[in-house]
Amino acid sequence: MLILLPPSEGKTPPRSGAPADLSALHFAELSSARQDVIEALAVVSAGQEAMAHLGVGATLAHEVLRNTRLAAEPAAPAHSIYTGVLYDALGYQSMTAVQKHRADDAVVVISALWGAVGFADVIPAYRLSMSVGLPGLGKLASYWKPKLGAALSAPSEGHLLVDCRSSTYAAAWTPDPARTVAVNVFTERDGTRKVVSHFAKHTRGELARHLLTRRGKAPTTPEELVRATSEKWTVELVPGTARKHHSVNIILPN
């Protein structure tokens, strides 16, 4: 089982530490592409229109400035860099050593800057969304899509992919639909369902934690994933097709 997560918008920069070593990250064949994004991001972040280009407000100027010196910034494991609703619910720091090792092996974060990283990969904090376009590279979802397809194909072979990404990050890689299950979260009242945003992030984080900390073997099929998920929530499986992934719908009480 592999759990695909989006990055958090906000990151927690480490106070100290050596800079990231691109050659030490998972999916080493992405190193050249990562370097190109780092360089293009530095140019944009140093420009007068940096804030507008990156789609952030003035309060995040310090994060944009950090983008100009990522090669020298202190780095830390991705599970401590990414923070926010989903990652708080996942609760890596409160896991046992065995559970942390399982998370390090199972979690892949799809990133606008790195393409994809493992949960224990050492990276700096940065500010960049997959929806942004960079000079010479274009929209990052389109830039990364063929590269991630090539780099992640072999490592994901034979794994059930539990896809907890948002649509922005899902656009950067379309894995084999037969082995992919997207996680949707709804509330239901009087037979009417509503998609929830904040609670979707939280629930996906809770699901990731549940799958990484529960006893027993990791699910290997969509049906097994439904059984594991139903240990905590009301769920239903929407079977996929030859071209469309499966979906697990988690129904929260209203």
Results as ranks from 00 to 15, higher is better:
Asp36Met: 13
Val37Gln: 03
Val37Gly: 06
Val37Ser: 06
Val37Trp: 07
Val37Ala: 06
Ile38Trp: 09
Glu39Ile: 04
Glu39Gly: 02
Ala40Cys: 12
Leu41His: 08
Ala42Arg: 08
Val43Thr: 11
Val43Arg: 10
Ser45Thr: 07
Ala46Glu: 12
Gly47Leu: 03
Gly47Ile: 08
Gln48Tyr: 02
Ala50Asn: 08
Ala50Leu: 02
Ala50His: 06
Met51Trp: 00
Met51Gly: 03
Ala52Gly: 09
Ala52Val: 10
Ala52Ser: 12
Ala52Tyr: 01
His53Gln: 15
Gly55Glu: 08
Gly55Pro: 05
Gly55Ile: 08
Gly57Met: 01
Ala58Asn: 00
Thr59Ser: 05
Thr59Leu: 00
Leu60Ser: 06
Leu60Pro: 04
Ala61Ile: 04
His62Ala: 09
Glu63Trp: 00
Val64Tyr: 04
Val64Cys: 04
Val64Trp: 04
Leu65Gly: 05
Ala72Tyr: 01
Glu73Gln: 11
Ala75Lys: 10
Ala75Glu: 07
Ser80Gln: 12
Thr83Glu: 09
Gly84Met: 07
Val85Arg: 08
Leu86Asp: 04
Asp88Gln: 14
Ala89His: 05
Ala89Gln: 05
Leu90Trp: 11
Gly91Arg: 03
Tyr92Asn: 10
Gln93Ala: 15
Met95Ser: 03
Thr96Tyr: 02
Thr96Asp: 01
Val98Ala: 15
Val98Asp: 13
Val98Arg: 09
Lys100Met: 14
Lys100Cys: 14
Lys100His: 12
His101Met: 04
His101Glu: 15
Ala103Pro: 07
Asp104Gly: 08
Asp104Ala: 10
Asp105Cys: 11
Asp105Phe: 05
Ala106Ser: 13
Ala106Trp: 01
Ala106Gly: 02
Val107Gly: 06
Val108Phe: 02
Ile110Pro: 03
Ala112Asn: 04
Leu113His: 03
Leu113Asn: 03
Trp114Thr: 09
Gly115Val: 10
Ala116Cys: 10
Ala116Val: 09
Val117Asp: 07
Val117Lys: 08
Val117Phe: 05
Gly118Pro: 09
Gly118Tyr: 06
Phe119Asp: 14
Ala120Gly: 13
Asp121Pro: 10
Asp121His: 09
Asp121Ala: 10
Val122Thr: 14
Val122Cys: 07
Ile123Thr: 00
Ile123Lys: 00
Ile123Glu: 00
Pro124Cys: 02
Tyr126Asn: 10
Arg127Ala: 02
Leu128Tyr: 10
Leu128Arg: 07
Ser129Trp: 07
Val132Ile: 14
Gly133Asp: 13
Leu134Tyr: 13
Pro135Ile: 11
Leu137His: 14
Leu137Cys: 14
Leu137Ala: 13
Lys139Pro: 12
Lys139Cys: 08
Lys139Glu: 13
Ala141Ser: 15
Ala141Ile: 12
Ala141Leu: 12
Ala141Asp: 15
Ser142Asp: 15
Ser142Cys: 05
Tyr143Glu: 09
Tyr143Arg: 11
Trp144Ser: 12
Trp144Glu: 12
Lys145Gln: 15
Lys145Phe: 15
Lys145Gly: 11
Pro146Lys: 09
Pro146Arg: 08
Pro146Thr: 10
Pro146Asp: 10
Lys147Pro: 15
Leu148Thr: 12
Leu148Tyr: 13
Leu148Val: 13
Ala150Pro: 02
Ala151Thr: 08
